[in-house]
Computed example of a mutant assay.
Amino acid sequence: MSAGGIDIGPGVFIGEDELVENFIRSSGPGGQNVNKVATAVQLRFDAFNARGLPERVREQTIKLAGQRATKDGVIVIEAGRYRTQEQNRADARGRLTALVAKAAEPPPKPRRKTRPSKGAVERRLKTKAGRSTVKKLRGKIEND
């Protein structure tokens, strides 16, 4: 657990000092206000050097971020969906939290190949033969 930051799960947290926010002009809703006030937020998180991320979670976070991650491992999230800085700030932090939480999930177990049992194969073939017989019996009846 971090003193001031975002707690994501057991052993995974983002420190408040690891987040850098810049407020920029938004392209979203706001009317004339949109040209005067910087309401959109650009949230930067240095995932490569983050203290609260285990190695596996760090690598997975950068991988999941895709184009939002720079070559240096800094994740940049822009949020300009709302008209206020507070809402955009919360939106950006929520999106970052969701990204890191998804990366922190344990990897799925690999699939093991299985084969149908001998009995199952025999039953399937028997029902197929039965269906075939039923369909053959549906043919035209010849009158003598």
Rank of each mutant, 00 (worst) to 15 (best):
I8A: 00
A103E: 09
G94V: 10
I77Q: 03
N88I: 05
R51H: 01
K63M: 03
E78Y: 09
R93M: 14
R123L: 04
K113Q: 10
D17H: 00
Q67M: 02
N88F: 12
K140S: 13
D17Q: 02
S117E: 12
K126T: 02
M1I: 03
K135T: 01
E122D: 12
A92P: 11
K36D: 09
Q60K: 07
R81V: 10
Y82A: 04
T39A: 13
Q87I: 05
R44A: 14
A38L: 06
K140L: 09
K140H: 14
R89W: 12
V34P: 04
Q42I: 07
R115I: 06
E16P: 08
A104T: 03
P10S: 10
P110I: 02
L99M: 09
D46K: 05
T97I: 06
L64D: 08
K109W: 07
L43I: 11
Q60Y: 06
E18D: 12
L53D: 07
I62P: 02
G94C: 08
R131K: 05
P107N: 00
L137Q: 13
A40C: 07
Q67K: 09
F23K: 05
T97S: 15
G11T: 08
L64R: 08
E21M: 15
E122T: 11
T114I: 03
N143L: 14
N35D: 04
R93D: 05
